[in-house]
Design a binder for these strands. Structure first.
Lengths: 233, 233
DNA sequence: CGCGGGATTGAGATGCATCAAGCAAAGTGG
DNA sequence: CCACTTTGCTTGATGCATCTCAATCCCGCG
């Protein structure tokens, strides 16, 4: 792999505390590849052969059943994904595909597990990484069980504005609407209608850019809570 | 704490590999208490002061928002819960209450974290515990997003029969129907109706006991998949 | 025997999905 | 440069799934 990519991988929470020789051993075994968009990296049910780390681009985690499909999460640089399956030496529970041209690091599962046994700092970093992922899914699950689709959309907009907005209330949607809909647990048609029902609350939609002109009103409807919407805790 | 309880705690995956002196230090700091049913142990949003381990009885994890409530999971002996919040030194994302008279071990968070730093085997055990919990929630989330309520019920019945049945197709529901409904993401009324729509598929309900007389038909409807329904992987 | 809580049933409203067009912006190829 | 497809989004009409509210039932328990 290119040495210019090493520092940013090394800087990752998962890798920044482990021993130098173990890190090098991992990178020695790893492959760095660039994939085109819409390429399937992982299929649910397959044995977990690799741990993946998104270095550049974007990866969608999704799942199928009953001839339905649901987007489970989007992974952005620089983050690992499907860590749990690798650790447990089990099958993947989710599929993964690139959503943009993406540079991705593939580390063979066996190497991850053997370094996990060898390097105590790496093991501890894994716990925190797993704990973060766990809490993310719990929040998603709470949102799905406790909120209506309009509320989920409203909260997503508020979060997006807060995290990525410049303070003006204007920002761009992070993905196309079809993906957003699936991520929020609804159909594209319904997302469209949900935007309409949010119009009286100061939500202006122009293609992929959003303007929130009445955040107070939107919050009244969305009733955000850090126990679902705070990505940090 | 009573020494007669130590062996079963020690036998837990989370504790069985750690050093003896560290285990004793943890137990030294811990409290073992028996609680009556329906007692609130933990409220979401509170800082994570303790790691809990159910020794006897049963604990419900639930969450509130928008004046709704949802059961997130049921915890049975012998298992820890809310490990992630303790590790991250964050607030609890879920509330917890006893559902039966329960003997519960409380270990102060700080002690858990300091032993986590000290004992490498303990840290590794945590990773596997977290990975298991993570995969459990992912499966729940997939079920909720990809299946109808009737399908969720059907699969729950099949799983229950497979795990706890005696092979005759007869078994008892693990909780009252109101709780089951919430766990499955529906209202009690709807659970009742869902049982009715399953009647043609050989599902006989008598109070809390269930008889499955046509498992093949039920499976045709439920379309179970290990990627959602297998509790082991 | 009556009381009370969970479970069921029914009726009605609502949320959400589905199906089917329509539309606009962005490619594509002549 | 312009038809022509393609793709993503929207809109409308309709039906099903699920929730809500209310009434009733059932059973265990005082």
């Amino acid at each position: 792999m290119r040495s210019s990519d090493l520092p940013e991988v090394r800087a990752l929470g998962l890798f920044n505390s482990m021993g130098e020789e173990n890190f090098e051993a991992l990178m020695q075994a790893a492959y760095l590849q660039t994939f085109p968009p819409q390429l399937d990296l992982v299929h649910e049910g397959d044995p977990a052969d690799f741990l993946y780390v998104v270095i550049e681009g974007c990866v969608e985690l999704y799942a199928n059943a009953n001839r339905r499909e649901a987007t489970m999460a989007m992974v952005h640089p620089v983050s690992p994904f499907i860590l749990a399956a690798v650790l447990k030496d089990a099958v993947y529970l989710m599929s993964a595909r690139t959503r943009a041209r993406s540079k991705i690091l593939l580390i063979p599962s066996e190497d991850v597990r053997s370094i996990f046994e060898l390097d105590d700092a790496f093991a501890r970093a894994m716990v925190l990484e797993m704990a973060g992922s766990y809490r993310y899914v719990i929040k998603e699950h709470k949102g799905l069980k406790l909120r209506s689709s309009v509320e989920r959309l409203a909260n997503m907009l508020l979060r997006q504005d807060h995290e990525f907005g410049d303070g003006s209330g204007t920002f761009d949607l992070p993905y196309d609407k079809r993906t957003l809909a699936s991520l929020l647990g609804m159909t594209p048609e319904n997302l469209s209608r949900a935007f309409n029902t949010l119009k009286p609350y100061g939500v202006e939609v122009d293609g992929t850019t959003i303007r929130l002109t009445d955040i107070k009103a939107l919050k009244t409807l969305a009733k955000p809570t850090p126990l679902i919407d705070d990505p940090k805790t």
